[in-house]
C-alpha cells in the first residue's frame, strides 16, 4: 500500500507491504537510523518516536497507521549536532547516556513527558520512563537530565 508520513517536517511517501512496522519505515524507507529496535514485545522503548506529538513505540505501530500523520524522531529535534534541543543538551550535560542505543527513544520519551508535564518530580520522571530500558546508566543521570531540562525550560 502507499503510505505517506510527514517525518520531521518533510513528507516521506512509499509503496510498502501492509505489515511494514513504522520503525522499519523510518529506518529503511526514510533512512533515519537513530530509532532502534531493542525488543519484540514493546518492552524496551528504544524505538520511541512522537506520533502527532505523543510518544509511541514505533515497533508496535504499523506504517499504515501513521499514514497521513506527523512523526518526529530524535533526528528532527534539532537542526544538527551544534544546536541541541534542551532535552538533548541536558542528556549531554548530565552524562545521561553511555552506549547510546536506548538514547534516541529515551530522549523522545522525555520530550513527550515534558510536553505533558513541564515540572515533573523525580518520581514522576522515573514513572514516565518506565517503558524505556537502559542497561548502562542505572537511570541515575537520565533522571537528572530530565529534571535539569525541565528546570531549564521553566521560565524563571
Amino acid at each position: 500500500m502507499k503510505v505517506t508520513v510527514t517525518v520531521n517536517g518533510g513528507e516521506v511517501a512509499a509503496e510498502v507491504a501492509d505489515r511494514t512496522l513504522l520503525v522499519h519505515f523510518l529506518r529503511d524507507v526514510a533512512g533515519l537510523t537513530a530509532t532502534n529496535v531493542g525488543c519484540d514485545t514493546s518492552s524496551c522503548g528504544a524505538c520511541t518516536v512522537l506520533l502527532d506529538g505523543r510518544s509511541v513505540k514505533s515497533c508496535t505501530v504499523l506504517a499504515a497507521q501513521a499514514d497521513g500523520r506527523q512523526v518526529t524522531t530524535v533526528e528532527g529535534l534539532s537542526s544538527g549536532s551544534e544546536e541541541l534541543h534542551p532535552v538533548q543538551q541536558a542528556f549531554r550535560a548530565e552524562h545521561g547516556l553511555q552506549c547510546g542505543f536506548c538514547t534516541p527513544g529515551m530522549v523522545m520519551a522525555s520530550v513527550s513527558l515534558l510536553a505533558e508535564n513541564p515540572s515533573p518530580t523525580e518520581d514522576e520522571v522515573r514513572s514516565a520512563l518506565e517503558g524505556n530500558l537502559c542497561r548502562c546508566t542505572g537511570y541515575h543521570n537520565i533522571v537528572r537530565a530530565v529534571l535539569a531540562a525541565a528546570s531549564e525550560r521553566r521560565p524563571s
Binding site: 533526528e75 549531554r92 552524562h95
Partner: peptide, 13 residues
C-alpha cells in the same frame, strides 16, 4: 561533557 554525545544524541550511533 563527552565528545561522543552530540552524534549519539542527534543522528544516533
Amino acid at each position: 561533557v563527552r565528545t561522543e554525545d552530540p552524534r549519539l544524541l542527534t543522528v544516533g550511533g
